[in-house]
Write a protein that binds this DNA or RNA. Structure first.
Lengths: 176, 176
DNA sequence: CGTAATCAGTTGTCGTGTCAACTAATGTGC
DNA sequence: GCACATTAGTTGACACGACAACTGATTACG
């Protein structure tokens, strides 16, 4: 019963079982992250990630386009989010001196303070919902598996090209 | 340097690396699924999953509340989606005979036809973006890892209590 | 029983993301 | 150098999901 190059290659029992769980995971995890951050810092996980990206950048500043790539956002989405964050005083936007089309965004002191305050609770949520459930071996397996999948989903590695986010002495905690 | 039960236990390098990749995965995968299904069947992945759940149910019928739990939707969300699907003739809603508060939803023949047509492309997308990147060992590891995490995120196993979705002779293909 | 509490579902409002259109600046080719 | 294409970013209109308020039916209880 080989494929005729038109017949669908349906999922095996093992494939289907793993897939169902992965879908459930991707369905539930974002909501859990958003819920905690919204409750404790009035930030979506996306806003938190954007502020983190700025906080970890040289001069705490990034071009809008670079920040959009880093956070997997479209430019219009980032523009809307940036306007709201700026209205809250968490970031500041100013024209790029070298390219007058471009806009730079900087995280403010208030923004640094907010994510510094929010980071511990966020880390705790990550541990409680994910990391604490995994053995050290599984942590490494997850790293490999997610990396393999991201080769397909994110070939240019826009999202994962990052200086470590919470490891060791966190830049945010120091800065706060 | 033990915790004082108030100090944040920051992520290790390994934890941070795995976490960043998992976040990227959960960020990118839903968009990839939605993009293919919207292009080929004008369905979001959520709508597709809801129709699939109906198709696999006895009598192709489910209570709204049960369908909401099965798809991790709030009832208002499902109500809106159901109205749109009904307007497109893909499902049919009618009052439950035994409980006059309740509403039952049935997938129509047109709905069955649509997901039968959409399923091969969807399976192909799942393979191309995820399964083909993993070894058989990794598939099993993913199953275990996602299961462990879901113990935290979905203790009642609402999302994963499912008859296998695409395995073997798929009910949808038979029915279409 | 009859009243209160709960449950099932729908509807309206609002916040957020997507898409298309637009402005403005930079690069390209002849 | 001057059109033309491309790039960076913003804005407005629309679609979808969350939350709250609401209707109507069922259950709990005294």
């Amino acid at each position: 019963m080989e494929d005729m190059s038109e017949e669908t290659h349906w999922l095996s029992t093992e494939e289907s079982a793993a897939w169902v769980r992965l879908v459930a995971l991707t369905e539930l995890l974002p909501g859990a992250l958003d819920a905690q951050l919204l409750r404790d810092a009035q930030l979506t996980h996306f806003e938190y990630a954007a502020l983190m990206a700025l906080a970890e950048s040289p001069d705490r500043t990034m071009r809008m386009t670079a920040l959009a790539a880093r956070t997997n956002a479209t430019l219009p989405r980032l523009s809307h989010v940036a306007r709201r964050l700026e209205e809250r005083g968490l970031i500041h936007r100013f024209p790029c001196p070298t390219d007058r089309r471009a806009t730079n965004a900087t995280i403010t002191e208030a923004g640094m303070q907010l994510i510094a305050d929010a980071a511990p609770g966020h880390v705790e949520t990550v541990r409680a919902n994910v990391l604490d459930a995994l053995s050290p071996e599984q942590l490494g397996q997850l790293y490999e598996i997610a990396g393999a999948v991201l080769t397909r989903l994110d070939p240019e590695q826009r999202l994962t090209a990052t200086s470590c986010q919470f490891s060791e002495g966190p830049a945010v905690a120091r800065a706060g």
